[in-house]
Design a protein around this nucleic acid. Structure first.
Length: 215
DNA sequence: GGCCAGGACACCA
DNA sequence: TGGTGTCATGGC
């Protein structure tokens, strides 16, 4: 257990309150959002998801059947829409090819196996896989993103060039294995990052000055 | 008008 | 295996 890691969590929780992530209505929506939000602000992702909803396509069967080109047009507000349309299609191929479209069955797999399977799908990298395991399957798998590395490097708790897996291990070894804790912690880090820790150095300093004095 | 978002993959040496 | 390029909208 890492006391400082827990202290930072409590400080963030006090500052921002419970986040209640993920902002989605169903596990399937979590998965679609996780792919669409790759290197993209959530505001843009929401527009794309709304388009899918209006078109009545926000379901495994809907996304499986819609032509690639139409799908790309619908998710245009999310960045890199051609690539992401292909990624969504690949995921549906995987879901129907291996689980007959049964999402519950896929998500019922043990966390470690689920993560490995997700990583085998083209377009699903470590962060996307962990987001799905944690927020769609509700199983413990800590999510690392650019904000996490940036903030904990500035806090002197991670090295600047830390790998994804190393950072993940650092958090999982340092925290109780608790799904709700993992969910809230990552959401709070993103909230802090969005407000104060953009890439510009001055903003990172600002973040640390105002929000990262953790005893 | 410019910068950059809650990444992942291809390609190259 | 690590570094760099590609993808390509919309908000601030």
């Amino acid at each position: 257990m890492n006391r400082k890691l827990l202290a930072v969590y409590k400080r963030l929780l006090r500052e921002f309150g419970p986040q209640g992530w993920w902002p989605a209505e169903t596990p399937f929506e979590v998965i679609v959002g996780a792919i669409l939000t790759q290197s993209t602000s959530w505001q843009n992702v929401e527009k794309a998801i709304q388009n899918l909803k209006k078109a009545g396509l926000l379901s495994p069967d809907g996304l499986r059947k819609v032509p690639l080109r139409n799908l790309a047009v619908l998710i245009r507000p999310a960045l890199y829409y051609n690539v992401k349309a292909r990624k969504l299609k690949r995921f549906m191929d995987f879901l129907y090819g291996n689980y007959d479209g049964n999402l519950d069955l896929l998500l019922s797999r043990p966390a470690g196996q689920l993560r490995e399977e997700l990583l085998s799908v083209w377009g699903v990298g470590p962060e996307t896989a962990d987001s799905i395991v944690l927020y769609a399957a509700h199983k413990p798998s800590f999510v690392i993103d650019a904000y996490t590395k940036r903030i904990y490097w500035r806090l002197g708790m991670l090295s600047e060039d830390v790998s994804y897996d190393e950072a993940k291990r650092f958090f999982e070894d340092g925290l109780p294995k608790d799904v709700l804790l993992y969910q809230e912690y990552h959401a709070l880090i993103v909230e802090l990052g969005k407000r104060y820790c953009r890439t510009k150095p001055v903003c990172v300093e600002c973040c640390l000055k105002n929000y990262c004095r953790f005893g």
